[in-house]
Design a protein around this nucleic acid. Structure first.
Lengths: 131, 131
DNA sequence: CAGCATCCGGTTGGATACTG
DNA sequence: CAGTATCCAACCGGATGCTG
């Protein structure tokens, strides 16, 4: 087994201030990554993002976009027209984050079958070897 | 703005069968990534993993390791000794996944400050410009 | 040592209804 | 169109106590 990794901070309680955790806690929710992905090709309006994802509720999209904006991953531009028009666009920060996630996405696409196979093949420990 | 990304699957309802989501749903929880990280350098016993992380409960560690094992990211080896001894080790699949996460970890470490700064500088929309 | 079972509070996120 | 507010169910995860 290779160990493609620098040592994690030694000692105890590394979860709290760990930057990866802080980033992943946001990106790792149900929708953030997906929103970043659909925004990657081009700037989109609220409804366009919603349509692109399909099964996200208005509430969660709004909330997710707000958080992404807050963390500096997307910009929110309001045009004072009627009806209102709001555009969301990846920032450089968001783009650079997404670039690091790209390999992960490719990996997931390539290895998803293997993971699913592992899940299917899995037998829980101590089945008590019944009959 | 650059767009360092292939287009996401068009149409609707892409969340369900999206491999990235399926992978991230596991890795994105509170502990999975951390466990993978501490296992990266070397095989560890249950208690060693627990100590390495510090503030994970026995319940969550057990549960997390089980899921990681089920997905094929770690192996679980039981030595029929007394007291019992169980070792956890990254599989190749887990190692390759971790390799794709490495850039993300580095990014997080490098840009954490910027994200935090963005959060602090953020002002919610329509503050109603009070006084 | 390495867990599992139970309880139980906080958070996540969906459905719905309403607003500028 | 682009949200906000409210309600509510499901799930996550911590604390504790008990086993082989």
């Amino acid at each position: 087994m290779s160990l493609p990794f620098p040592p994690v901070a030694p000692g105890s309680g590394l979860a709290e201030k760990c930057p990866v955790r802080d980033v992943l806690d946001r990106i790792g929710d149900r929708w953030s990554l997906l929103v970043l992905l659909v925004l990657a090709p081009k700037t989109l309006r609220f409804t366009e993002v919603k349509r692109a994802i399909g099964d996200i509720s208005q509430r969660m999209l709004s909330q997710t976009l707000r958080t992404l904006e807050k963390d500096g991953y997307v910009t929110r531009t309001v045009y004072p027209t009627v009806p209102p028009k709001v555009e969301y666009c990846l920032t450089e920060l968001g783009g650079s984050l997404l670039a690091r996630i790209a390999p992960l996405v490719e990996w997931a696409n390539a290895n998803h079958d293997q993971v699913r196979a592992a899940r299917d093949a899995y037998v829980p420990p101590s089945s008590a070897t019944p009959l």
